[in-house]
C-alpha cells in the first residue's frame, strides 16, 4: 500500500513536470478544452437564470375577460355575480374602465395623447385566477367565460409564459447536445495528445517494458496526464464562465437601473464548480485510457 502510494505520488509529480516542460503545447491544449467546455456551461447559466426570472414573472396563469365597450354597469355587475358563484374561480379582480385609463395614463407617459381622446377606449375588465391551473381546465374556463353575455373577449395570459417555458426547455436540450458533443471532443483531443506522447516516447516505453514494467505502470503517467489536462481545462472553463458572468453583471447594472428591475446573473455554485472540475478530469482519464490501451499494444520490444 505504501509503495503503491509512493509510486502514484511520484508519477503525479513527474506528470506535472511533463506538463510544465512543454508549456506552450500544454497551455494551448488546455485552452482549447476550456473554451470548448465553457460554451455549454455558459449557455446553461443563461438558461438557468432566465428560468428563474420567468418564474418570478408569472407565478400563476390568469384569464383576462373584457366587456363590450358599451356594456352598462348593471351588465358588468351581472358578470361579477356569475364569477362569484362559479366553483371554478379562485378569485377575481374587476378593473373598471376609468381606473384602467388612469393607470395607463400614469404608467405609459402618454397622458397628453390619452387626454386628447374623445372617449375612453378601454372596456371594463376582469382578471381571474382559476382554482385548477392545468392548461385544459384553464382553456375550458376561458371558453366558458367568453360565451357569457356582453363578454367580448377572454384570453389566457399564461400563453406567453408557456411559450417561454417551452423555449427554455428546448434551450436545455441544446445545452445537453452541445455538452455531449464537446465532451466527445474533449475525449478526442486527449486521445490524440496521448497518442502523440506514446509515439514520441516509444523508445522509453520499449525499454521499461523490457526491464519488467507492468502495463499498469506504463499506462499510469499517460492516464495522469489526460486527467490532469482535463481538470486544467475545467478550471479554465470555470474562469471563462465566472469572468463572463462578472462582466455581464457589471454591465447589466446600468441596464437594470434603466428598467428599474434587478436582473443579475447568478454565479456558479460550488457544486457546479466541482462538477466542472471532476467531469473533464474523468473524461480526460477516459480519453487517455482509450488511447494508451490502443497504442501501447502496438509497441512490443
Amino acid at each position: 500500500m505504501k509503495t503503491w502510494l509512493a509510486q502514484h505520488g511520484r508519477c503525479f509529480g513527474t506528470t506535472f513536470v511533463k506538463l510544465a516542460r512543454t508549456p506552450l503545447g500544454s497551455v494551448f491544449n488546455i485552452i482549447v478544452i476550456g473554451i470548448a467546455l465553457s460554451l455549454p456551461v455558459g449557455l446553461y447559466v443563461v438558461i438557468d437564470n432566465l428560468q428563474a426570472a420567468s418564474g418570478q414573472l408569472s407565478a400563476e396563469p390568469q384569464i383576462s375577460a373584457y366587456m363590450a365597450l358599451d356594456a352598462s354597469r348593471a351588465e358588468t355587475a351581472q358578470i361579477e355575480n356569475r364569477l362569484k358563484q362559479s366553483p371554478r374561480v379562485q378569485r377575481f379582480r374587476l378593473v373598471p374602465r376609468d381606473q384602467a385609463l388612469q393607470e395607463l395614463k400614469q404608467s405609459s407617459g402618454l397622458a397628453d395623447v390619452i387626454d386628447s381622446l374623445p372617449q375612453n377606449p378601454l372596456p371594463d375588465a376582469f382578471v381571474i385566477s382559476a382554482k385548477n391551473n392545468t392548461p385544459q381546465a384553464l382553456e375550458a374556463l376561458r371558453d366558458e367565460i367568453a360565451q357569457w353575455p356582453r363578454v367580448v373577449h377572454a384570453q389566457l395570459d399564461a400563453a406567453w409564459a408557456r411559450r417561454l417555458d417551452a423555449t427554455l426547455r428546448f434551450g436545455r436540450l441544446v445545452v445537453l447536445i452541445l455538452g455531449g458533443l464537446l465532451a466527445l471532443a474533449l475525449v478526442a483531443v486527449t486521445f490524440n495528445t496521448i497518442r502523440l506522447q506514446v509515439l514520441t516516447q516509444r523508445d522509453e516505453v520499449e525499454v521499461i517494458k523490457l526491464i519488467g514494467a507492468t502495463d499498469a505502470f506504463i499506462r499510469r503517467p499517460f492516464l495522469y496526464y489526460g486527467a490532469l489536462q482535463g481538470a486544467a481545462g475545467g478550471i479554465v472553463a470555470w474562469l471563462i464562465v465566472s469572468g463572463g458572468i462578472w462582466v455581464v453583471n457589471h454591465n447589466l447594472g446600468e441596464l437594470s437601473h434603466v428598467y428599474a428591475s434587478l436582473f443579475q446573473l447568478k454565479q456558479l455554485t460550488p457544486g457546479d464548480a466541482g462538477a466542472l472540475l471532476l467531469l473533464p478530469l474523468a473524461l480526460g482519464w477516459f480519453g487517455a485510457w482509450l488511447s494508451v490501451g490502443r497504442h501501447l499494444s502496438l509497441i512490443e520490444p
Partner: peptide, 21 residues
C-alpha cells in the same frame, strides 16, 4: 537502450522504480 531524458542516476533507478522501491 538508455533513456536520454534523465541522468545516469535516473537510468539506474528505473528498475527499482518499476518494482516499487
Amino acid at each position: 537502450k538508455l533513456l536520454f531524458d534523465r541522468s545516469a542516476f535516473g537510468n539506474v533507478a528505473l528498475p527499482l522504480e518499476i518494482s516499487g522501491y
